[in-house]
Design a protein around this nucleic acid. Structure first.
Lengths: 202, 202
DNA sequence: AGCCTAATCGGAGAACTCTCCGTTTGTCAC
DNA sequence: GTGACAAACGGAGAGTTCTCCGATTAGGCT
């Protein structure tokens, strides 16, 4: 459903599902612009879809039809960076992209993901707010990616489970908690992720 | 703040912070009873504090003063089982309690925690809804416990981080997702947790 | 018993998320 | 152009969470 509601993007799309009507496209862009500006000015925490609608000059129904829910809008805001990120581990240079040994790619991926979550912390926090609770399309893509690498690196393990287990600590809430309450630095977190990943890879 | 708001319990309390007034205690119990009954009848998902208040015959303000927020009430509902669980790994028989080697205790603890989360799935899901987003008192206790065991089992590792990393996959949302969307069984999940823990422990 | 005061109560209300559905508007075929 | 119709619009409204503050009351003190 999310995939339909969010229009194209976020995935290497197969075929344009529906050529969006002109007014719909205009409104989508207006909403995204307003949301981006409001977040830049006041942070993502208090982002109200009601207000986004009002400022964008559209009805609140339009926002929800376009993006499904708050998480859908956030996903759309993350979209640009998400596409770049996905490209870098699907087809970019090693160690993130193909060419490096699987183990190295896994470690590089997790470290890059930590950086990405930290850079967009507020948006990722908001992401866990919708009904899919964080298991949105990007998560599924990360999972497929890691599972594939793990299957080759350690054929005897339950790759699907280990992929979830490696992704779980790279969670916006946990990272925010570790930084704010435990006083950990991003470097410490990345070292930790690295150590755990290497341990799992033998 | 939560600790104050929630009255006693949940922690081996040091001293009664405030002898609760009679009407306050009566209302607290009434609210807990009503909430318990409503969850038994209709599941925890749609639990509305507004409705709990109405049925319990108190104002909604009373519910919030007593429990802080929805997560606070859920914490109170989990309290009984939580005390038993904490006792079992602090002072119960091995391998959960003292006596077994640290590594075994860690594995046993994580497996027991998976069982507990599955058994109270709905309540744990609700728990991640408040402002503390799941890093409530119980989480902190689990973390202290694991950190202590890890420090003895593997002094060279960053025990605090590894504890978070081991707890992260035992997350109500992830487990619900794995069971519902991935079709995993509880046994598979427990095997996975075990494998990851053993890997981290060398 | 009767008073005093601080703790507690309760509900109106602010702010939000999301749904529903009658109305409006692109778009495409002619 | 023009007409038809699927798609999109928008805002009222239902249902929540949580806050605020004047009214109420329990319980110690005289």
């Amino acid at each position: 459903m999310l995939d339909r509601v969010c229009g194209r993007r976020l995935l290497p799309v197969v075929g344009q599902p529906q050529p969006e009507r002109a007014d719909a496209a205009r409104n989508r862009q207006k909403i995204i612009d307003v949301a981006t500006r409001m977040i830049a000015e006041r942070g993502a925490a208090g982002l109200s879809l009601d207000e986004v609608a009002r400022v964008a000059g559209v009805g609140v129904g339009t926002v929800y039809r376009r993006f499904g829910d708050r998480a859908g809008l956030v996903l759309a805001l993350l979209d640009e960076g998400e596409r770049r990120f996905q490209e870098s581990f699907f087809a970019g240079p090693p160690p993130l992209g193909p060419g490096a040994p699987e183990g190295e790619r896994i470690v590089a991926f997790l470290r890059a993901l930590v950086d990405r979550v930290v850079a967009q912390e507020e948006l990722f926090l908001l992401l866990e707010t919708g009904k899919a609770k964080g298991f949105s399309t990007p998560y599924q893509i990360y999972h497929v990616h890691l599972t594939a690498l793990l299957t080759r690196a350690r054929p005897e393990a339950d790759a699907a489970y280990v992929a979830d287990a490696l992704l779980a600590p790279v969670n916006a809430y946990l990272i925010a908690f570790q930084r704010e309450e435990r006083g950990m630095t991003v470097e410490q977190i990345k070292s930790g992720v690295t150590a755990v990943a290497r341990a799992v890879l033998r």
